[in-house]
């Protein structure tokens, strides 16, 4: 394949304050169907540089299932996935926090074949954000897998905890600090 010419990408713009009418889905939070045995709620706030919760943000998540399979045609095992597993979650923050019902994903390799720790890719959109920011959720109760993760190992040690979801009463808590002393690690992807 040769690439003779490339088209420049369309620029990003903010979702603005009225994102909810276009982007909130009733079934948005359900990466897995309600009642899935090993399901957990991933919840948290999105905080601005003054530590105030952002209530006009949207959090989207993408992940594999518990066996490392993605609901996507480029995954040769996608046909084996339980029906109802979407892999994608979406929640606004009008209540002060987002909430995604999901499962802790399995392990998948990086491009060189090194196994990654269980992780969820996250996009955050909001009024006042002209482009999404991307981060990853890892799970604080998987310390061995996290210690060997090829992405976490590129993160300065003192900032790694910003990528860890902590066990909570009904799953995990993961706050996103867009700015400030505890600013979350964001990625260029």
């Amino acid at each position: 394949m040769t690439t003779s010419s490339t088209l420049p990408s369309t620029p990003s713009q903010t979702v603005g304050p009225y994102l909810h009418i276009g982007l909130t889905w009733q079934d948005g939070p359900f990466v897995v169907p309600e009642g899935t045995p090993s399901s957990v709620w991933l919840r948290g706030r999105v905080l601005d540089g003054a530590g105030e919760p952002i209530t006009d943000a949207l959090v989207e998540t993408w992940q594999c299932d518990e066996h490392g399979r993605f609901a996507h045609p480029e995954d040769p095992r996608s046909a084996e996935i339980d029906s109802g597993f979407r892999g994608f979650g979406r929640s606004d923050t009008r209540s002060g926090e987002y909430g995604i019902l999901t499962v802790v994903p399995g392990r998948v390799p990086d491009r060189t074949g090194v196994p990654q720790a269980p992780h969820v890719d996250v996009s955050v959109f909001a009024r006042g954000m002209l482009h999404r920011v991307v981060t990853r959720v890892y799970f604080a109760d998987r310390p061995e897998a996290n210690a060997a993760d090829p992405v976490l190992s590129t993160v300065p040690r003192d900032r790694r905890q910003t990528l860890l979801a902590r066990p909570s009463a009904d799953g995990y808590t993961f706050d996103v600090h867009v700015q400030g002393e505890y600013e979350t690690v964001f990625f260029d992807v």
């Binding site: 995954d75 990086d110 491009r111 992780h119 990853r136 590129t154 964001f186």
Partner: peptide, 9 residues
């Protein structure tokens, strides 16, 4: 932002 090498995710 840090660079995230694109894996299957």
């Amino acid at each position: 932002p840090l660079t995230l090498p694109q894996s299957v995710t």
